[in-house]
């Protein structure tokens, strides 16, 4: 099993270990599409406020994943994926800081 996978890995070394022209092109196309979608929605006022906000945030996160997978090759890192772990921890901290700030500052009007 392991021999099979190592043979397979050898045969497609160029494509799989560090990305290929194909994967970069797919990533580029996807990120353009994911950029155009929220722009079209916002500039033409296609949706109501909450739905527009959701579209903007979802396409942004999708674009983050596209860049991480197709451009930064997060899936092809060495065995213990310390970079992925650090990134997840960073993401948790950022979400806590941003959501926590918005939440706590929403009490500003109550206090005044």
């Amino acid at each position: 099993m392991s021999q099979h996978s190592s043979n397979h890995g050898h045969g497609h070394h160029e494509e799989h270990s560090h990305g290929s022209m194909k994967s970069y092109s797919i990533g580029f196309l996807l990120s353009i599409v994911l950029t155009i979608i929220p722009m079209v929605v916002v500039f033409n006022g296609l949706l109501e406020r909450t739905a527009t906000l959701l579209v903007i945030l979802i396409t942004a996160v999708a674009q983050l994943l596209v860049q991480l997978i197709f451009f930064m090759h997060i899936r092809e890192a060495d065995k213990p994926r310390y970079n992925l772990m650090a990134l997840v921890l960073g993401g948790i901290i950022v979400i806590t800081i941003v959501a926590g700030s918005v939440w706590i500052m929403s009490f500003n009007s109550v206090v005044q």
């Binding site: 650090a86 990134l87 960073g90 993401g91 901290i93 950022v94 941003v98």
Partner: peptide, 11 residues
């Protein structure tokens, strides 16, 4: 790791 620390700065 530097990039993650930069993520915190921007966050």
């Amino acid at each position: 790791l530097f990039l993650v620390s930069d993520v915190l700065l921007f966050g």
